[in-house]
Design a protein around this nucleic acid. Structure first.
Lengths: 132, 132
DNA sequence: CCTTCACTTAACCAATACGTTAAATGTAAT
DNA sequence: ATTACATTTAACGTATTGGTTAAGTGAAGG
């Protein structure tokens, strides 16, 4: 996806298994393009472009080392992605705090009623740009 | 992206701001397609297909309610995504455990040496399919 | 220098993504 | 039955993605 916004760029980058494999590799150590390409079943130019995508999402940084170019993991954008997802933790986490348990119960109760708003034909939707 | 695997499908689904907005809406309450489409600047068919993508990633479930179709948030796949990202927490989190602090220090030390493997022209890469 | 090595860019291709409008489907209501 | 409403599917256009091979570019090394 064209990086419309930062978070989209990060999720988009993570959507590709090859790129996730590259990040996993970089978690162990910085690496050159050739090193990263070695275990992958694709050509070097393909790897080069995956790296460009990761760089575009700010998930890696790169520097020249003589003949080589080293890639380094930059995890800050992963924090943003994690933060976004965290908002939904209460929907799956079973080890809830007392307050969260209450809120989850309310949520569940609301769901048990089996209806959303009584009359969905009269939607009272607020424009919800709480987050993207 | 075509759902090559579950995790890719989830990250791919999250890569679109419209779909993230839909999930945010569903965090508050179940909703019909019309309700979800109301605040969005796109046509109903477009929303319908975003919902199909979310359903394909198992991020929502749907049921018929008479004339309407209600969408419900299903957060389990978000847990998987969060779990994947969590592995990288030590790279950004400043509140480290004692062990993590040690590991991070080792990591940092390795980076200070400014070189990856002494001679990158002789890469000793293991095929790292530790994870996708 | 001139070659070699590491990598990127260019040009191309097939498949997918995301939007549109128009037509089809299914349920409800008259 | 007929009409209306909610939603999906079809058909279409354009942009992006992810891969390829072939042709640059830049630094090292003989």
């Amino acid at each position: 996806m064209a990086a419309t916004d930062q978070l989209s760029a990060v999720f988009s980058a993570l959507a590709d298994p090859t790129r996730r494999a590259i990040l996993a590799e970089l978690a162990d150590r910085d690496a050159t393009v050739t090193e990263l390409a070695a275990p992958l079943p694709i050509s070097m130019p393909a790897v080069s472009r995956h790296l460009k995508v990761l760089e575009g999402a700010a998930l890696i940084s790169r520097r020249r080392l003589g003949k080589w170019r080293a890639s380094r993991l930059e995890a800050a954008p992963l924090r943003d992605a994690a933060d976004w997802i965290e908002r939904y933790r209460r929907f799956w986490d079973s080890s809830l705090t007392r307050l969260d348990a209450h809120l989850a119960a309310v949520q569940a109760a609301g769901r048990e009623t089996e209806g959303m708003a009584q009359d969905p034909s009269v939607p009272d939707n607020k424009v919800l740009d709480k987050e993207l």
